[in-house]
Amino acid sequence: MIGLPVSEIAEPSLVPELLVSDLRRSLEFWCGLCGFTIAYRRPAEGFAYITLGGAHLMLEERGVGRNWLTGDLQVPFGRGINFQIGVAALEPILAALRDDSWPLYLEPEVKWYRVAEATEVGVRQFLVADPDGYLVRFQTSAGTRRLDG
């Protein structure tokens, strides 16, 4: 599915570009299961720019076009990083993943994080690995709470 015209895409200041082993398979995951849309693509270069709300990613197929590798690339890709993506609701993504029998890395949970001396923000979240092992943490707000004491 194709999204907005390129002229209407407000690019954020940081857009990660993920090197993937199979662009078609990655698009099935990111767009087909997780709700992203293709803003634009360059098939001859194995490239797609995808968006979901304010989350923007570039996907580039390994071995097609120009890849910038600083070392050996071994699966799982992206070790040591996870991409947090805020969404309005987790349920549609969870349902699509479960319908496809896609395994979750971390089951849905509510987690509270301290952001000030007496304040925490809560998120409902889960983690899933994309086809190349990049960890994605989808989250939605669970509110704010004050800490007593």
Rank of each mutant, 00 (worst) to 15 (best):
F83H: 08
F36Y: 07
L97Y: 10
R79P: 02
D130F: 01
L106R: 14
F126Y: 13
F29M: 05
I50D: 03
G71Y: 13
P43W: 15
Q74P: 04
L106W: 11
G133T: 04
L33D: 10
R79V: 11
A96Q: 08
L18R: 00
A89G: 11
M1H: 05
F29R: 03
P16Y: 00
F29C: 03
L52D: 05
T70Y: 12
L4F: 03
T37K: 09
L147P: 00
G46T: 14
V110Y: 01
Q84F: 12
K111T: 13
S21Q: 08
D72R: 15
L104D: 12
T37Y: 05
T37D: 06
P103F: 09
E28F: 04
S7Q: 14
L33W: 07
L147D: 01
G149Y: 10
R66H: 10
Y134W: 07
D100N: 13
D72V: 15
S141A: 15
A44K: 15
Y49R: 06
L106P: 06
S141K: 14
D132W: 01
V6H: 07
T70V: 12
A55N: 05
R114N: 00
I81E: 12
R24T: 10
Y49G: 01
L69V: 13
L52M: 10
P76V: 14
I9G: 01
T70K: 10
Q84G: 13
Q139P: 04
R25H: 01
G78P: 06
G46Q: 13
V123F: 12
L57H: 03
E11A: 03
D130I: 03
G53F: 02
A48Q: 08
M1W: 05
V110S: 01
L23F: 00
V64R: 15
F138E: 08
F47A: 04
V123H: 08
R114A: 00
A88P: 02
V20F: 00
V6D: 09
N67L: 13
R25Y: 00
L27C: 04
R25C: 01
P5K: 14
I38H: 03
I9V: 14
P131S: 02
A96R: 11
G78S: 05
A142C: 02
E45N: 02
E17C: 02
F77P: 03
E107V: 05
L27K: 04
P5T: 14
E117Q: 05
N67E: 12
R137Q: 10
L4K: 11
E60Q: 15
A118G: 09
G63D: 05
Y113K: 07
A39E: 13
L57W: 04
G3L: 03
G149I: 12
G122N: 09
W68P: 06
